[in-house]
C-alpha cells in the first residue's frame, strides 16, 4: 500500500531525510517513531503529496506521488501535526466542505457526515461552531474529516498530541477499530506506549535515517535476543551487591530504582544463574531477580543516539 524507495529530502545543505526505504502491506498499522526533527513529518508530507522528494520515489495505493498526485490524494487520508479549523463554520459544514473537496457525490454527504460524526463520537457537536470545540474535539473533528472519503490509507502525524489520557485511550481504540476495518495506517508519534498497542509494524527514525523497521515482535525479539534487562533486589547491603553484580554481569548501566537495581547485560542465562548462586552464597538475601520485558521505549533508547539536527 505504501512503498518508499530511497526517499531523500534536503533543504539546501541540510539533509532532512536520507534514503528511506519502507514497504507497508494493506491492513498494516505502522508506528513511526523518532525524536524531534528526525524527519517524520517530512516523510509524511512527501507521502501526502505536499512536498516533493529531492530524490527517490514513493507510491501510495499503487500510485506514484510524483506522477499521479491526484490519484494519491484520492486514496489517502492525511492529518497534519498542526492544523487549523475554519472558525465561523459549524462542524457539519466543515465536514461538508471536505466532502465536496474530495468529490464525494452530493447525495451521500448527509449519510457520510452522520457516520463519521458517530464514529468519532461527535454527534452531539454536529451543530456547534468549530471554535467552541475543545482541543480534543477538534482533533477528533479533523480525524472525522480525514475519514470522510473512506480512504484506504490513513496517515496521521502525531494525532495524540494535546489529548488527555482518556481521549488518548479513546483515540487508540478508534485507530484499532480502523485498523480492524482493513485500513492501512501510518501513525507518527514520540509517545511510544501509545503505538505499541495497535501497531503491527514500527519504524525508528533519527536524523533522517530509518534505523530499524519491521514487525513489532521481530524488532522486540531482535533487540532482546542478546541483551537482557534484569531487575535485582536484595535486602540491605545494596552497595556491596552492586559491585558484585557489575563485575559478574559486565554491566555498566546499573541504575537504582526504588531499592532495586535495574541493568542490562549481554551475559546469558548461565551467567545469571551463576550470579544468583553467588549472591546467596556470599550472604546477600535476594528477594527479586527478574527479567524485564523489553519495550518499545527501551529499543528506541538503544537504537537512537540522541543526535539532534
Amino acid at each position: 500500500m505504501i512503498v518508499c524507495q530511497n526517499l531523500s529530502k534536503s533543504y539546501g545543505e541540510h539533509k532532512a531525510l536520507q534514503d528511506l526505504n519502507l514497504t507497508l502491506e494493506a491492513g498494516d498499522a505502522f508506528g513511526f517513531i523518532g525524536p524531534n526533527g528526525a524527519g517524520k513529518s517530512t516523510t509524511i508530507r512527501i507521502l501526502a503529496t505536499l512536498q516533493e522528494p529531492s530524490e527517490g520515489e514513493a507510491w501510495v495505493g499503487g500510485h506514484s506521488v510524483l506522477s499521479e498526485p491526484d490519484a494519491v490524494r484520492e486514496v489517502l487520508g492525511y492529518m497534519p501535526d498542526q492544523f487549523g479549523l475554519y472558525e465561523g463554520m459549524r462542524s457539519w459544514e466543515y465536514l461538508e466542505f471536505y466532502a465536496a473537496a474530495y468529490r464525494v457525490p452530493r447525495q451521500r454527504w448527509k449519510g457520510l457526515i452522520d457516520e463519521v460524526l458517530e464514529l468519532t463520537d461527535l454527534t452531539v457537536k454536529k451543530q456547534s461552531f468549530v471554535e467552541t470545540l475543545s482541543t480534543g474535539m477538534r482533533q477528533r473533528l479533523c480525524l472525522a474529516k480525514t475519514l470522510l472519503h473512506d480512504p484506504k490509507v490513513l496517515i496521521l502525524d502525531e494525532p495524540a498530541s494535546g489529548l488527555d489520557p482518556r481521549a488518548r485511550i479513546e483515540l487508540k481504540l478508534l485507530l484499532k477499530e480502523l485498523s480492524r476495518m482493513g485500513k492501512t495506517l501510518l501513525v507518527s508519534s514520540h509517545i511510544l506506549p501509545e503505538l505499541a498497542d495497535f501497531c503491527n509494524k514500527v519504524g525508528i527514525i533519527e536524523a533522517g535515517r530509518l534505523l530499524a523497521s519491521g514487525p513489532v515482535n521481530s524488532i522486540l525479539a531482535q533487540a532482546s535476543r542478546d541483551r537482557f534487562r534484569l531487575r535485582i533486589r536484595v535486602l540491605q547491603k545494596n552497595q556491596e551487591a552492586r559491585q558484585l553484580i557489575e563485575k559478574s554481569l559486565e554491566a555498566d548501566d546499573v541504575a537504582e530504582e526504588s531499592d532495586a537495581l535495574v541493568l542490562s547485560t549481554a551475559v546469558g542465562l548461565e551467567g545469571q544463574a551463576d550470579l544468583l548462586e553467588k549472591l546467596v552464597r556470599d550472604g546477600f538475601r535476594p528477594v527479586e531477580f527478574s527479567q524485564l520485558k523489553t519495550d518499545l521505549e527501551q529499543i528506541f533508547l538503544e537504537v537512537t543516539q540522541g543526535i539532534t539536527q
Partner: peptide, 16 residues
C-alpha cells in the same frame, strides 16, 4: 491566513 492557521495543507492534500 490559511497558511498562518495551518489549514492550507489539508486543503492541498485534498482533491481541490
Amino acid at each position: 491566513s490559511e497558511r498562518e492557521r495551518h489549514s492550507l495543507d489539508m486543503v492541498l492534500a485534498s482533491r481541490i
